[in-house]
């Protein structure tokens, strides 16, 4: 028993240590006065890379682009998800299970393979390289998973509350807006944060659907920076940290709810 316990602690401590290793370069390099793609212990630490990055007009613009696109996509997907989620949670109808299963399938759809037809489609309808096109596609990608998460959370709000309202003569739609939504607000807020972070981390959608420099969000900007001829890796690292920290904080905040909703399963 004791040996098992020691073994468990050792294994988990080692695992945690391994998980930290990749961050070492990022953190050390971002405070380093010289640029190096490899790992070098710098002679001294400096905040200069952060200063340079934060005074660069181009980077600041990409941060704003990242915010606008992530938030735009988030609003759209949440808006389009609340209604269907409510119906799937409360109403019984013929196609329910089939629709639910297809939404579950779309949730894990290998989206990347859609980008090339989407790209051709966008060029043909003049949405290529536009802010709205990018936001619409980011938005649609999250609709299935949002419906799924919301539906599973709605399942846990007791039906008796709306039933009471319904008895009073309110219609379904009214009960959705006045009785149900206020109760669901916490989970909706969490979902907004979650969507935002997912969009913030999305690289390939803007990478393929956008090309103008002033439209590129931070994710693509970092990658482009990585590929330039005379890269300054310390600034790259500093910029990556600025990009990563909000994502991590917000993710930590919302993950618990997402998992609870995701592992809810299908109740036929």
């Amino acid at each position: 028993m004791k040996i098992t316990k020691i073994l468990t602690y050792t294994v988990l401590t080692l695992l945690a240590a391994i998980f930290i290793v990749p961050f070492i370069w990022l953190i050390v390099e971002s405070f380093s006065p010289v640029s190096d793609l490899g790992f070098v212990i710098p002679s001294h630490f400096t905040l200069a890379p952060f200063y340079k990055v934060l005074t660069n007009h181009e980077f600041i613009n990409s941060i704003y682009e990242g915010l606008i696109q992530s938030f735009g996509g988030t609003l759209i997907s949440v808006m389009f998800s609340i209604g269907p989620a409510y119906i799937f949670s409360r109403k019984k109808f013929k196609l329910r299970l089939y629709l639910l299963l297809s939404i579950l399938f779309l949730t894990g759809f290998p989206v990347f393979s859609l980008l090339i037809p989407e790209y051709i489609f966008y060029i043909k309808i003049s949405l290529y390289n536009t802010l709205i096109g990018d936001i619409l596609f980011l938005g649609v990608l999250n609709v299935p998973i949002d419906i799924w998460i919301l539906k599973n959370s709605f399942d846990q709000i007791p039906q008796s509350i709306e039933r009471a309202a319904f008895m009073d003569g309110a219609s379904s739609i009214k009960s959705l807006f006045y009785v149900f939504l206020p109760l669901a607000l916490p989970i909706v807020s969490v979902l907004i944060i979650l969507n935002f972070v997912v969009n913030w981390g999305n690289f390939y959608v803007p990478f393929i659907l956008l090309s103008s420099n002033h439209l590129l969000p931070i994710a693509v900007e970092i990658y482009s920076f990585f590929g330039t001829f005379n890269v300054r890796y310390n600034e790259l690292a500093a910029f990556s940290i600025i990009y990563t920290i909000p994502a991590i904080i917000l993710y930590m905040f919302s993950q618990k709810y997402m998992i609870k909703a995701l592992s809810g399963g299908i109740k036929g």
Partner: peptide, 25 residues
């Protein structure tokens, strides 16, 4: 331990790619 593992999960993939490149290089 859970937090450390979750931080990795929350890291955006672009950053993760760059970090791993420099880690494994």
């Amino acid at each position: 331990v859970t937090t450390i593992i979750l931080i990795a999960w929350a890291t955006p993939q672009v950053t993760a790619g760059i970090m791993w490149y420099s880690t494994l290089s």
